[in-house]
């Protein structure tokens, strides 16, 4: 298989993935922009192979949280421990080199490029040849390109987008663009995949497809997934654990069932009489 294939144990074969140790630990994270507090003293962790959802009303700080994880924002307070190492100041490209890949709330693809070329960009971190040899496209560069193309084709096959391989992304419907974005993230062979509202704006059928792909990715490649999503049905169905944010604070954390019965969460979502 293509990605860091995890040896599955007998128990995994009997159903369910084996959830491993904590790989990402966020401790007392606070983030503010000037006087605006986006995140206040938030702690939670992510275990290997799990699907972890971050939910919350609009403006709760979900996307900020994701941006903290992949190094776009630098929290003023708190520690981030990734694979047992405390993270210092980090830039997004470093996240990519640490096998963290992500998709965006507003699709961030190259609209004029074909699906294939877009996914190829996901391989960028894995390319070792220098600029000159790529320009000449000879010897090692050529072999490397073929190797990368093979990986990309595997992703295309996995996400069933063969028929749009050569179509410019801008011409595709929204649901398919989201899938292409996922493909690009997968092409980087991530061990941690961050999905920012992967199902926003999709119809029921597209949502079902996307759910299946997320579960398949998690199952086949053992990829750990952190996702933000508004559709509660989807979140409760596919995630192992859910963390709930509201006004930059954590108000709930646990399995979907625990979160569902948490009075604070219910209040945040349905509103309470004050």
């Amino acid at each position: 298989m293509m990605m860091n294939e995890v040896a599955q144990t007998e128990s995994a074969a009997a159903g369910g993935r084996r959830i491993g140790d904590v790989i990402l630990d966020l401790q007392n994270i606070s983030l503010s922009f000037g006087g605006v507090k986006a995140l206040t003293n938030i702690s939670f962790n992510v275990r290997e192979h799990e699907i972890r959802a971050i939910i919350g009303p609009n403006g709760a700080g979900k996307s900020s949280m994701l941006n903290v994880i992949n190094g776009v924002y630098h929290p003023q307070e708190g520690r981030i421990v990734f694979h047992g190492e405390e993270r210092k100041e980090m830039e997004p490209y470093m996240a990519a080199s640490q096998n963290i890949a992500r998709t965006f709330q507003n699709i961030a693809l190259f609209k004029g490029m074909s699906v294939l070329d877009n996914i190829m960009t996901g391989r960028h971190m894995k390319m070792n040849c220098g600029l000159l040899s790529h320009v000449l496209y000879w010897g090692k560069a050529q072999r490397e390109e073929i190797e990368h193309r093979k990986k990309v084709e595997e992703v295309i096959d996995f996400l069933e987008i063969q028929s749009i391989r050569k179509t410019p992304v801008g011409r595709l419907p929204y649901g398919l663009q989201k899938r292409v974005e996922l493909a690009r993230a997968l092409a980087a062979e991530p061990s941690l995949l961050l999905l920012d509202e992967p199902m926003a704006g999709m119809n029921v059928e597209e949502k079902q497809d996307m759910c299946r792909f997320i579960l398949d990715v998690n199952d086949q490649f053992g990829t750990t997934i952190v996702l933000i999503e508004h559709d509660m049905g989807v979140v409760m169905d596919i995630s192992d654990r859910v963390v709930v944010l509201d006004y930059g604070k954590k108000i709930g954390d646990g399995t979907p069932d625990e979160v569902k019965s948490n009075p604070e969460v219910i209040a945040a979502y349905l509103g309470t009489a004050h």
Partner: peptide, 8 residues
Amino acid sequence: PRGMRHYT
């Protein structure tokens, strides 16, 4: 064999 891993 895709997706067939957990079938016993």
